[in-house]
Amino acid sequence: MSINAVQNANIAEERPFIAEAEHDGARVYALSGIWTTRTVAQVDAEMREIETRGVREPLILDVAGIEKIDTAGAWLLERLITALQARNAEVRLEGEGEEINILLGAVREASRRGEEVSRPKPPGFVIAALEGVGRTVYTIRDDFLASMNILGSTIRGAQMKLGRGHAVNLAAIFHQIDRMGVGAVPVVVLMSAIVGGIVAQQGAYQLRYFGADIFVVDLVGILILRELGVLMTAIMLAGRSGSAITAEIGSMKMREEVDALKVIGLNPVGVLVFPRLVALVIALPCLTIIANFAALGGAIVISWFYSNITPAAFLDRLRVGISLSTIFSGLIKAPFMAMVIGILASVEGLKVGGSAESLGRHVTASVVKAIFVVIIMDGAFAIFFASIDF
Score class of each variant (00 low, 15 high):
Val6Cys: 02
Val6Asp: 13
Gln7Tyr: 12
Arg15Met: 12
Pro16Leu: 02
Ile18Leu: 12
Glu20Tyr: 00
Ala21Tyr: 07
Gly25His: 07
Arg27Asn: 05
Ala30Met: 06
Gly33Glu: 04
Gly33Ser: 01
Thr36Val: 03
Val43Phe: 00
Asp44Tyr: 04
Asp44Met: 06
Glu46Ala: 07
Met47Glu: 06
Arg48Ile: 10
Arg48Lys: 15
Asp62Thr: 04
Gly65Lys: 01
Gly65Glu: 05
Ile66His: 07
Asp70Tyr: 04
Ala72Val: 04
Leu80Asn: 09
Arg87Ile: 03
Leu93Val: 08
Gly97Glu: 02
Glu98Phe: 00
Leu104Asp: 06
Gly105Thr: 08
Glu115Lys: 12
Pro120Gly: 03
Lys121Pro: 15
Pro123Glu: 13
Ala128Arg: 14
Ala128Phe: 10
Glu131Ile: 08
Arg135Met: 12
Arg141Gln: 14
Asp143Cys: 06
Phe144Pro: 15
Ala146His: 04
Asn149Gln: 13
Leu151Ile: 12
Ser153Ile: 02
Ala158Tyr: 10
Met160Tyr: 14
Met160Glu: 12
Gly163Ile: 01
Arg164Val: 13
Arg164Tyr: 14
Ala171Cys: 07
Ala172Ser: 13
His175Arg: 11
Asp178Phe: 11
Met180Arg: 05
Val182Ala: 08
Ala184Ile: 07
Pro186Ile: 02
Val187Pro: 00
Val189Lys: 04
Val189Gln: 04
Leu190Ser: 01
Ser192Cys: 02
Ser192Asp: 06
Ala193Trp: 13
Ile198Gln: 12
Ile198Phe: 09
Ile198Cys: 08
Gln202Asp: 04
Ala204Lys: 01
Tyr205Ile: 05
Gln206His: 09
Leu207Ser: 01
Leu207Asp: 03
Gly211Ser: 02
Ile214Ala: 00
Asp218Ser: 12
Arg226Trp: 01
Gly229Met: 10
Thr233Cys: 01
Thr233Ala: 01
Leu237Ile: 15
Leu237Phe: 04
Ser243Cys: 02
Ser251Gln: 15
Val263Gly: 11
Leu272Pro: 15
Val273Met: 08
Phe274Arg: 06
Phe274Pro: 05
Arg276Gln: 10
Arg276Pro: 03
Ile290Ser: 00
Ala294Asn: 04
Ala294Phe: 02
Ala295Arg: 08
Gly298Glu: 10
Ile302Leu: 06
Ile302Gln: 05
Ile302Val: 09
Ser303Gly: 09
Phe305Ala: 03
Ser307His: 07
Asn308Trp: 14
Ile309Ala: 00
Thr310Cys: 03
Ala312Met: 15
Ala313Lys: 14
Ala313Pro: 12
Leu318Ile: 12
Leu318Glu: 08
Gly321Ala: 13
Ser323Gln: 14
Phe328Asp: 10
Leu331Ala: 01
Phe336Met: 10
Met337Tyr: 07
Met337Asn: 04
Val352Trp: 09
Gly353Met: 05
Glu357Asn: 05
Ser358Asp: 15
Leu359Ala: 00
Val363Gln: 08
Val367Gln: 07
Ile375Gly: 01
Met377Gln: 08
Ala380Met: 15
Ala380Phe: 15
Phe390Ser: 00
Phe390Gln: 02
